[in-house]
């Protein structure tokens, strides 16, 4: 029972999706639609489970006084504050004088999103601009023909993709009175031909891999994914 039921559910839900693609009849179609509606709810529950897990880890951290456990306090505070603001009835919030409640525009929840979530996440990603600069200087070494090809392409794309590439080409073509390919054109060609060919082969290969994995899962051949043997 412990193994058979989850395996049956995997096979049933999986095959429903595949059969639903090939069989248009309403009997199958309605069933597939139902299964999809349930999956939406399960997926949402899985996200909540993930968050519950994070909360649990940090509560443990605090109770065990782990290294850096102090930082778990702001984390848990922010977590519960956001949940509270988001799910209490909207009129509770508006009765306190805020323009809106729930997750709506103008609510305290929305204010925290705009002034804390947005800048922090944006800045986390902006850090990568610095890292990429540092890596370009310190760890980009042209040691082989392959690396040389990569480097030349990267430089051509970087310069051809932004307006300065066009300006340089126009100036240069004007200087030598010729109508050579401009940097944006070269960049476009690289993207459209050699890049496209390799990316297409990667897509095909990755698709084969993904189809094989999915087939094995929904036919019950590969069981490690659902935690069984």
């Amino acid at each position: 029972m412990r193994r058979e039921i989850p395996l049956f559910l995997t096979i049933f839900f999986g095959c429903m999706m595949v059969i639903g693609f090939f069989v248009p009849h309403p009997i199958v179609n309605e069933a597939r639609s139902r299964v999809e509606e349930w999956t939406i709810i399960l997926a949402a529950a899985a996200v909540v489970l993930g968050v519950a897990n994070v909360a649990r880890i940090h509560m443990h951290k605090i109770s065990r006084r782990d290294r850096d456990f102090q930082y778990s306090f702001p984390l848990l505070f922010a977590l519960f504050l956001m949940i509270l603001l988001g799910i209490v009835p909207k009129d509770w919030i508006t009765s306190m004088g805020f323009p809106a409640g729930g997750t709506d525009e103008g609510s305290p929840f929305d204010w925290l999103y705009n002034n804390a979530y947005v800048p922090m996440q944006g800045t986390m990603f902006a850090l990568l601009a610095f890292y990429i600069a540092s890596a370009a200087f310190r760890a980009f070494r042209i040691r082989t023909v392959e690396a040389a090809l990569l480097a030349i392409t990267a430089v051509l794309v970087m310069i051809g993709r932004v307006p300065v590439g066009g300006s340089i080409s126009n100036w240069f073509n004007g200087l030598i009175h010729l109508d050579l390919w401009t940097l944006p054109e070269i960049q476009q060609w690289i993207m459209d031909i050699p890049n496209l060919a390799a990316k297409r082969a990667i897509l095909i290969g990755a698709a084969l891999g993904a189809i094989a994995t999915s087939l094995k899962i929904i036919l019950g051949i590969e069981r490690s994914a659902i935690g069984g043997d």
């Binding site: 980009f140 070494r141 392959e146 690396a147 990569l150 990267a154 990667i202 990755a206 891999g209």
Partner: peptide
Amino acid sequence: PFFVVACDYTMIGEEFF
């Protein structure tokens, strides 16, 4: 791309599998 330029050998996609 970042592995290729900074590593001595890189297994690409399916090569890894």
